[in-house]
């Protein structure tokens, strides 16, 4: 890659940051260049975010229909999935799945709710409802 090929069209997921890339200058030396990003990297990040958004919205509908607890909604909203939620909380996946049942979720102890809230960076009050 030559310096003039380093993507500079911009990538809105980078929030104005620039990333360092390595490219060849006029003398053939490979040097560091700040890149504003481009379509390729933007597309795949947006695709990943869209995938998460779809899961989050589907969970919201299920919460509204009484089929799952707000925990599942928040899990996706905070960019986790079931295996990751299990890793960050230390709870077994089947146990978390049980906590998705609205009746069981309503009866969860403060400690367990707090653990979920902590790993997701929200409060217990937030966790209890949809935003």
């Amino acid at each position: 890659m030559d310096i003039n090929e380093v993507p500079q069209e911009g990538n809105r997921t980078m929030g104005g940051h620039k990333r360092a890339m390595y490219a060849r200058d006029a003398d053939g030396r490979i040097v560091i260049v700040a890149s504003a990003g481009g379509e390729v990297d933007e597309t795949v990040t947006l695709q990943a975010l869209e995938f998460i958004r779809e899961q989050t919205e589907a969970a919201r509908k299920r919460v509204e229909a009484g089929e799952t607890s707000p925990l599942e909604y928040w899990m996706y909203a905070q960019r986790l999935d079931l295996p990751q939620m299990s890793q960050v909380t230390g709870f077994w996946q089947w146990r978390i799945r049980r906590h998705f049942q609205p009746q069981r979720f309503a009866k969860l102890s403060g400690d367990i709710l707090q653990r979920y809230a902590d790993v997701m960076g929200i409060t217990v009050e937030q966790l209890r409802t949809l935003p």
């Binding site: 990333r19 890339m21 390729v40 597309t43 795949v44 990040t45 695709q47």
Partner: peptide, 20 residues
Amino acid sequence: GHIVRMQEEIGTGGAGFRFL
């Protein structure tokens, strides 16, 4: 998309590390 993301986005990845 995930392959490309691992390559281009997360820790620069594939192409980036080859240039480095």
